[in-house]
Simulated scan of single mutants.
Amino acid sequence: MFALPKSALAAAALTMTALPALAKDVNLYSYRQPDLLKPLTDAFTAETGITVNVAYLEKGMVERLQAEGKRSPADLVLTVDISRLSAVVEAGLTQPVHSDVLAANVPAAFHDPDGQWWGLTTRARIVYASKDRVKPEEVTTYEDLADPKWKGRICTRSGMHAYNVALTAAYLHHHGEEATKAWLEGLKANLARKPQGNDRGQVKAIWAGECDIAIGNTYYMGEMLEDPEQKEWADSVNIVFPVFEGDGAHVNISGVAMTKYAPNKDNALKLMEFLSSPEAQKIYAEANHEYPIAPGTEPAALVKSWGSFTADSVNLMELAKLRPAAVKLIETVDFDG
């Protein structure tokens, strides 16, 4: 396993190009920390004898792959959020993968119809609600977040963050441009403070009494409960699963795609199929506090304790297509201003 240094693209490209493309290797670029993937890669290597080299990138995956071109050692990319996956696809840096194993393990809503990317696990974009100041039944829909009853009571990270852009794209899918603009304006009017920080920072703000509810991803609850400093924040809130009127809760994914010039294509396919398997999904979901998507799989006990929900029925590729329009609306209402 290796980690890329924070260096210029050209230097990084040279470093990566120098890596050998061995018959028993597969090279993975990931926005996820290598230690989060280690239980998976170790299990895959134990089963197949194939070594997985993981390069962690903080940002710039598209730019790096473009700079490396045909010399890139990357076989697969693994990242979170449909917008990040679709960005790699739209840049022409992936190739379609068709596999009966993948098709059996990954429901249609969670993979590209053309096979350019395949989902692995999901997370819901939910509401964290103060145990002391909010009854769970007070928050039922995403639409409700624009209700004036929440004026001065909501915290969130930047509207331009990929997670909130995806949520806005989902709202746009369900309600159209004018209604989404009005919703963003209503949500902005209800903020207790200017958008800032990360999802865990919003829970800390609830704990500190700065706001009563916040928008965040489910898996952050698991991360906070494991951190002695942040456990008190987590204990101060309930997880509430809002839905879109007439549909389900907004979910996003972690997913994998094969690069256009994958030098170890056969090994890469084996790893993709393994990652989609119930065995790997269970390992990944437990390590990252996410929801497995393979049929017949169950979330970890902690995740299951947060409650059940029905996922929004929209195919995530539809949300990816709406991302530019969602960004434009967020900018139009000056959400972060």
Score class of each variant (00 low, 15 high):
Thr15Lys: 03
Pro324Trp: 12
Ala205Glu: 09
Ala55Trp: 10
Leu22Asp: 12
Lys194Ile: 08
Glu273Leu: 05
Asn27Lys: 01
Leu9Pro: 03
Ala257Asp: 06
Pro242His: 10
Ala287Asn: 11
Pro195Gln: 11
Trp117Pro: 07
Trp117Asn: 01
Asn238Glu: 13
Gly49Tyr: 09
Lys70Leu: 11
Glu58Ala: 06
Met16Ser: 08
Tyr220Gly: 13
Glu229Asp: 13
Val54Ala: 13
Ala285Tyr: 05
His111Thr: 05
Glu177Asn: 10
Pro20Leu: 07
Thr41Ser: 02
Asp336Lys: 05
Met1Val: 14
Ser277Asn: 13
Val327Phe: 06
Gln116Arg: 15
Asn288Met: 09
Ala179Leu: 07
Phe241Asp: 10
Phe44His: 05
Ser236Phe: 01
Met317Gln: 14
Ala124Phe: 03
Glu318His: 07
Thr122Tyr: 09
Ser254Phe: 09
Lys151Gly: 02
Leu316Trp: 08
Gly152Lys: 04
Met160Arg: 10
Ala18Lys: 11
Lys59Ser: 07
Ala311Trp: 01
Gly255Ser: 12
Ser7Asn: 14
Phe2Ala: 15
Pro228Leu: 12
Asp100His: 06
Ala170Pro: 07
Ala325Leu: 01
Glu229Ala: 14
Ala87Leu: 06
Leu78Thr: 09
Thr141Cys: 09
Val106Leu: 10
Phe274Met: 15
Lys321Trp: 11
Leu93Pro: 05
Tyr31Asp: 13
Ala208Gly: 09
Ala182Arg: 02
Ala74Gly: 04
Ser313His: 07
Arg32Tyr: 11
Val243Arg: 14
Asp334His: 15
Leu322Pro: 00
Val327Asp: 02
Glu229His: 13
Val203Glu: 02
Val303Ala: 11
Ser86Tyr: 11
Asp100Cys: 03
Ala287Val: 09
Ser254Gly: 08
Asn27Arg: 08
Leu4Cys: 06
Val54Glu: 14
Arg125Ile: 12
Asn164Ser: 02
Asp336Ala: 13
Leu269Ala: 04
His161Tyr: 13
Thr259Lys: 03
Asn267Asp: 04
Glu286Ile: 08
Leu322Gly: 03
Ala294Phe: 00
Glu279Pro: 07
Asp212Pro: 00
Ser158Cys: 00
Ala189Trp: 04
His250Gln: 14
Glu68Ile: 00
Asp112Tyr: 10
Thr218Tyr: 01
Gly307Asp: 07
Ser158Lys: 10
Ala109Thr: 13
Ala129Glu: 02
Thr51Asp: 13
Leu191Phe: 00
Arg193Cys: 01
Leu57Tyr: 02
Trp183Thr: 04
Ala13Cys: 14
Asp235Gln: 15
Glu58Asp: 05
Phe44Asp: 03
Glu177Gly: 01
Glu143His: 10
Met1Trp: 14
Asn238Lys: 08
Pro242Cys: 09
Glu210Arg: 04
Pro107Phe: 03
Tyr219Asn: 13
Pro228Glu: 08
Trp207Ala: 15
Leu65Met: 13
Gly222Phe: 06
Val139Ser: 06
Asn164Lys: 00
Ile206Pro: 01
Phe244Arg: 02
Ala55Pro: 10
Trp233Arg: 05
Ser308Gly: 06
Val106Asp: 14
Ala12Thr: 10
Val127Met: 15
Ala311Ile: 03
Val26Gly: 04
Ala320Glu: 00
Ala192Leu: 01
Gln281Phe: 03
Val314Gln: 09
His250Asn: 10
Ala189Cys: 10
Ala104Gln: 12
Lys265Phe: 00
Asn164Trp: 00
Ala8Gln: 06
Asp147Ser: 08
Thr156Ala: 14
Ser30Cys: 03
Gln116Asn: 15
Asp199Lys: 02
